[in-house]
Each structure stands twice: as C-alpha cells, then as structure tokens.
Write a protein that binds this DNA or RNA. Structure first.
Lengths: 110, 110
DNA sequence: GCTTATGCATAGGAAAATTATGTATATTTG
DNA sequence: CAAATATACATAATTTTCCTATGCATAAGC
C-alpha cells in the first residue's frame, strides 16, 4: 500500500468514502484516484484491493456490476444502503482514531 | 475490555513516543499511561504490548533493565540512540498518514 | 478468603496487508 | 512492428500485527 505500515486497516474506509462520493467506480479506477488525490503518496496494491472489494460485496456493503467498455471488462461497485450507513461509521471511527493519536503524540495541546 | 481497536502499525509509534517523553517505563506502566491519556478510549492489550517491546528491543531500538520494586519485578525500557532517531521517523510517518487520510476523507479542504 | 490490581510472558488464531503470479486487451514508443 | 507500458481483474502464499486466552506470581482491598 505504501512505505508506512499505518495505512493497514484504513483500506475499507478509503474504498467506502470514495464510493460515497463517486456513485460507482471500478477497481483500477480506485487505485488511480487514490494515487491522484494523494499525489502518489498512497498506492493501493491490487492484491489488497480486489480481496477487499470482494469481502465488502460479500458483506452486503457493495453491489457489483460487470460492464464492457473499450473491449475490456470493468467491474463497477456501488454502495448499498447498508454500505452507506457503514461509511458513516467508518469515517467516525477514523476521525476518533486520528483524534486519539493526536492526543497521544501531542499531549500539550490537550 | 479494549474499546476501539488499535489501528495496525500504530503501537510501535505510541511506545516510542511515550519513551521519548518519559525516559524509562515498564510495560504495565505504558498500558496505564495510554489508558489515562486517552481517557479509557484506547487500551493496549498485553498480548500486543509485550511482543512489541521484545521486538523493538531485538531491533536495537530499546534497552531493557529488570528492577525489583515493592517485591515485584519490573522490566524498564528506554530508547537507544537508534531508537531516538527512529522515533522522529515514526512521528513524521504518523503526521504524514494523518494528513493523507484527511485529504482523502475531506477533499473539499484541499 | 475472594476479587481486583500489579507485573511479565507466550501460544494460537484472525485480519489485513505484501509479494508474486496469472490472464487478457489496448496503447504508446523506440 | 516489436517491446514496453497501461488498463483490468483475480488468487495463492506469506508476513505483519494485533487479539484472545492462558499461565505464573505477588500485593492490596473488601
């Protein structure tokens, strides 16, 4: 995913957030979007992304639809209703985690 | 018992940062300090902490010293020179991670 | 005396990445 | 025009990192 191990555990949140903004996306598109937004800082590996998408689909948070474009197959994913609700939870969890870590590394500010 | 789970990769950063502030600490003390600072939000489990301490010691980032206090054994850890340098790196990585994630989840602010 | 707190340790297992492959088509470049 | 790169999805094997459960031992509180 990147040189820092800290990103472990954040992949699902990233996927859900992107799908919350963009209605529907396919896997490769997600990797490119993340790379663009983070200016190359974060590169999602395929070995991490595809299993994560399959799991989210199996859990009922995503729906998938295969579409043919430019003679190539794309598997588009979109949030289910459950997925939308879970996105809110994940984002709150991330915000809480960041807050906790900032408390720990910068106790003077508390 | 433990409320919000640790995000993978953050435990080492927490340990190094605490030892950077407090000169020397023992394992149990670290769990209590984290609990106190985060107001119970984050509870480091022993099954995570002790192996992490052993690994940091094996990597040469920490030195350990066993001390008898109140008829009980405490294993105090402190940063080595290498450990101090690595602390700076880990904190920078954490700052970068937070910045990147905020960019991803809050693109309007960019 | 029983429970909780203090203190360290490890075994077993789960979760979530990485690395390494595999398949296939399209486009760019030397 | 052949080779490299980009697009697109997928999985197997392994590693990292954490949690749960368990074990041992002493001290303090009720």
């Amino acid at each position: 995913m990147s040189n820092s191990k800290l990103y472990k555990g954040s992949l699902n949140t990233i996927i859900l957030k992107l799908l919350n903004e963009h209605d529907r996306m396919y896997g490769y598109e997600i990797t490119q979007k993340v790379k663009a937004i983070t200016k190359g800082e974060l590169n999602i590996t395929e070995g991490a992304l595809y299993p994560a998408l399959h799991k989210l689909e199996a859990e009922g948070l995503l729906d998938a639809e295969v579409v043919k474009a430019d003679n190539r197959l794309r598997k588009y994913y979109k949030l289910t209703d459950t997925g939308s609700k879970e996105t809110v939870n994940k984002l709150q969890e991330l915000a809480d985690y960041i807050k906790t870590m900032q408390t720990l590394i910068n106790p003077n500010l508390v």
